[in-house]
Simulated scan of single mutants.
Amino acid sequence: MISVQQLTKRFGEQVAVDGITFEIPAGQIVGFLGPNGAGKSTTLKMLTGMLAPTSGTATICGHDLQSDTLEVKRHVGFVPESGAVFESLTGLEYLEMVAALYAIPEAAARARIEQFIAFFDLSFSTLTDKLLGAYSKGMRRKVVITSALLHNPPVVFFDEPLDGLDANAAVGFKALIQTLAREGKTIVYSSHILDVVERVCDRVLIIDKGRLLLDGKPETLVAESGAGTLERLFTQLTGGTELERRAEDFARTFRP
């Protein structure tokens, strides 16, 4: 479903993504991990056609990222970290606009929207009576997730999807992506909440400074490293242990 070969992105002299290579089959949930500035969001933007790569190749569902960009966009859903929406629209107007962009018939679009708002425990009046600019962060996130899944894409990219969701919505979302994977959809899940990644992902990719450091099943990587948890392994690979030492030094400044 996703094939990436030596994908690279440079911004002037800065190398944001440095020749990463991986493949992801259908029905797999893959955690895409890395510290801030590691190149995760840049990679996701390339794979969704939002940024052109500097070099390398990628295909989504057999469609080439650069020569067949429109088909790539038809086959993917994307929940960006920003969760940006058109704030002057109501939730329903925004979702209907997205449905129109994907040429979803009006009746089918309305049925899918109603299914999603029922899943997220939203009232229909919420979608029709308030502009998105007045929504809470969590409500806006639910609308963005709905918009990404509305056209039933075979590949879905999530960048920090739990940001703003309450505990119940987060539990429901985790069940949702596991259900989507069982139905054969490919899920790429980028998050800093590593205990969630460890529980729901079949596989993790860890990236730092634009380079792919590790690729494998979470339990296998943790066992082979002896780290005990995915979080501990992550900090060892990406320099987080140094941050722990700095935190200790900082805390000492408050001691008498």
Rank of each mutant, 00 (worst) to 15 (best):
Q178R: 15
K40S: 02
L51T: 10
L131G: 12
G49K: 07
T57H: 00
V30F: 00
A103I: 01
E183N: 09
F124I: 09
R232G: 03
R199W: 00
R10E: 12
Q115N: 11
D202W: 05
Y102Q: 07
R245K: 15
R232A: 15
L95N: 07
S136N: 05
T229S: 15
A181I: 00
R245Y: 09
I206Y: 06
L44E: 01
A175N: 13
H192V: 11
E183C: 00
E87W: 09
P153Q: 10
R199S: 10
A26D: 03
Y94F: 15
E231V: 10
E106A: 14
P105V: 02
C61W: 01
T179Y: 11
L95E: 01
A107Q: 14
P256Q: 12
I29P: 00
H75A: 11
E87V: 09
E114G: 01
A52C: 05
F78K: 02
E106W: 00
T42A: 05
A223W: 04
A38M: 07
K45G: 00
R112P: 06
T21V: 12
R110P: 01
L213P: 06
I145L: 09
I24P: 00
A16L: 09
L213C: 13
L70N: 10
A223F: 00
A111F: 07
N168T: 15
K40T: 07
G62V: 08
K9M: 12
N36V: 13
R211T: 14
L176E: 06
A109L: 09
G62R: 02
I24F: 07
M50P: 03
G77D: 04
D159G: 06
G164A: 12
C61Y: 01
S3R: 15
L205M: 14
L165V: 14
I20K: 06
E87F: 04
T220D: 13
I177F: 06
D18P: 08
V30S: 07
P80H: 05
L127R: 07
D215Q: 13
V4D: 02
P35C: 01
T59P: 02
E242A: 15
G216P: 13
A16T: 10
Q6A: 13
D18F: 03
E13Y: 05
I206R: 05
R246F: 14
V4I: 11
T48E: 02
I24C: 04
G133W: 06
K142T: 05
D68Q: 15
A109Y: 09
S191P: 01
E114I: 06
N36S: 12
P105A: 04
A181P: 07
A84D: 11
A99C: 13
I20P: 02
G27P: 03
T253F: 13
E81A: 06
R203G: 06
R141T: 12
